[in-house]
Structure formats: structure tokens, C-alpha cells
Design a protein around this nucleic acid. Structure first.
Lengths: 155, 155
DNA sequence: ATCCGTCTTGAGACCTGTTGCAATAACGGC
DNA sequence: GCCGTTATTGCAACAGGTCTCAAGACGGAT
């Protein structure tokens, strides 16, 4: 006896989340959700649009971006900005974390746990400022690139 | 007896910095420098273009942005990204610092000194990652907005 | 004063997103 | 199953920035 809404199915859960907030469940939203299920890690807006178009060639950018906004409100995705300011979406964030991005080699790392606390903690204590960790991208030079480029007189 | 290049004049110093690197000193660059001298704090690209157009209605965006890039290399300006990813230029940075931006009230604060060190220090020590502090913008909720909006289940 | 190499500029196309608005279609009620 | 409300979509224009490329001009050499 199958339950009407399978708790393990992320798409069914998303649909329920939409409906619970009086929002509508549309084919377009379903398609974008399906793309997200197949994605992992960090994806740019353009990548998501391209993938969505593979399923439905009619997909328009505005719908994708608007859906991503809604999904962010629902907590299903989060976004931050790469060092050039472009959006990067983080799908199904398992744990809340920030990012570290090397300006030279473009590699990225996640900042979480104690390391994240070292950054957010002092701001919260001293200023009462609550950091939006998942939106945070810290850029600079990783140890490898910093060694390679030699004296970079202070970025 | 006036010296040919007045050490106190930031525009003359900029001119010399350009020439010293084999770059040319053009009317456009001079105009943009003049705008920057009259600016303070944080300015957006659009604001700078508008102000430059007041002096020279022919000013084009590409020239302004390119000049800003060069000036950033020379260390005369720095830029970071607001919480929506748009560029914000920081003119004549007196001290290297990052920014804190409230997503609700849009207020911003500077992060410098010990506070900055608390953020960059652990990343440098543990990962050898050198943070580009002047490019950093941390967004979240300031104490006032956080109190006002009540329980925000973890940004 | 003129010439020339090459750095800069300007124009416009392009890129990533956002927004206003009319047309469309979910979905709760009958 | 049909209707009406109203959330959502698609389109097209807009906004902030970047990039290419031909034309122009800075400035060292003559």
C-alpha cells in the first residue's frame, strides 16, 4: 500500500511544500525540480537553464530564476556569488556552509563547522550580526597559488 | 618654484603611476580620476558613470569599467560585490578592510583590524589561504533587523 | 615638428539576471 | 466535470558588466 506522498521522494516533498504555502504545482516547476535532483554541488544559473531546456526546450530563463527564488525561500537551494559576482546555486544543501574561492586557480572549498564558527562567531558576539553563511564566498589565494605567484603585496 | 609633480596631488600621483608602468595618461582617465577624488566611501559602477558623464557627456561605460580595473591593479580603488552581486567600488582605500552588509536594512559596516584578523587568521593558519579582504562582503542580518524579524530559522 | 608603434577608446554585440504585463492554467468550490 | 480566482508563465524590454575590433591618440624616437 503506497502512501499518496512518498516521504522519501524529494520531488513529492517539494510539491507538498509548494501546496502547503498556497503555491501551485506546475509542469515547469516539476521540470526544474527534476533537473535539481540530478544536479549536485554548485551549479550556475546558465547551467540550470541549459539542463532544463534538455527536458523542455520551451523553458525560459525568467521561469527558471523565479523558481529558484521560490525554492530558496523554501530552503531547497541556496545561492552565493562567485568572485566575479555571478550566481552559483547550491542544491539540496546538506549542511549550511560558506565557500572559499581561489581567484587564481578557481578552485573552491567549503567552510563549515568550527571553521565557519570562527568566522561568524566573533561577528555575532561583538555585533549581534547573524551571518548568512550559505551566501558567503570568501575569495583570495589558496596556499598553492599564493606560493606560486610569489610576493603579492597584499590583496 | 613649483615641482613638476606635486606629491600631494592624488591626480598627479596617479598620472605618474600610470606612466611608470608604461601606461598612457589620457583625458578620459584624468576625468575618471577627478570623479574619484570627489567621491568617498562606496560607489556603484553606475554612479561613477553618471558622474563622469557630468564632466564629459561622451563617457562610455566600457572606458569607465576598464579604467577602474586598471586603478584597482594600481591599488587606487578596490571593489567588492553587494549582496545582490553588483559591484561596489571603494575609493582611495585608507586601510584594507572588508564589509558587512545587512540584507534587510541594507546598512553596511567595515570590518578591519582585529575583527578582520579573526576572520582571515584562521583560514591563513589552517589552510594557508590568503583572504582578499577588500573584496569581501559578508551578508546577513544586523542585530536590529534580526531582533525585528524575529525567528528567522537560520539564514 | 613629425613619425610610428602600440596602448586606449568607442560602438555595439553579447552575457547573466530582473521586471512589467498580458495571457494562461492550477486548483478549490459547486 | 465546469467555473472563477489568482498564482504563474512567457515575452520582451531593461539593467549592469564584459568583450571584440576597427579607429584614434599618447608619447618616445628622429
Amino acid at each position: 500500500m503506497k502512501p499518496t506522498t512518498d516521504k522519501a521522494d524529494p520531488i513529492a516533498r517539494a510539491r507538498d511544500a509548494f501546496r502547503a504555502r498556497g503555491m501551485r504545482w506546475t509542469p515547469q516547476r516539476r521540470a526544474i525540480l527534476e533537473v535539481l535532483v540530478g544536479a549536485s554541488g554548485h551549479v550556475t544559473g546558465v547551467e540550470l537553464i541549459e539542463r532544463a531546456r534538455l527536458r523542455d526546450s520551451e523553458t525560459t530563463p525568467s521561469t527558471v530564476y523565479r523558481t529558484l527564488d521560490v525554492l530558496e525561500e523554501l530552503g531547497l537551494v541556496s545561492h552565493s556569488h562567485g568572485h566575479d559576482g555571478r550566481e552559483e546555486f547550491h542544491v539540496w544543501p546538506v549542511s549550511r556552509h560558506g565557500h572559499l574561492a581561489c581567484e587564481a586557480c578557481r578552485a573552491t572549498w567549503e567552510i563549515e563547522g568550527d571553521e565557519a564558527l570562527a568566522i561568524t562567531g566573533s561577528l555575532t558576539r561583538k555585533r549581534g550580526f547573524v551571518v548568512n553563511l550559505s551566501h558567503l564566498t570568501i575569495s583570495g589565494l589558496c596556499s598553492e597559488c599564493n606560493g606560486r605567484t610569489g610576493a603579492n603585496p597584499g590583496l
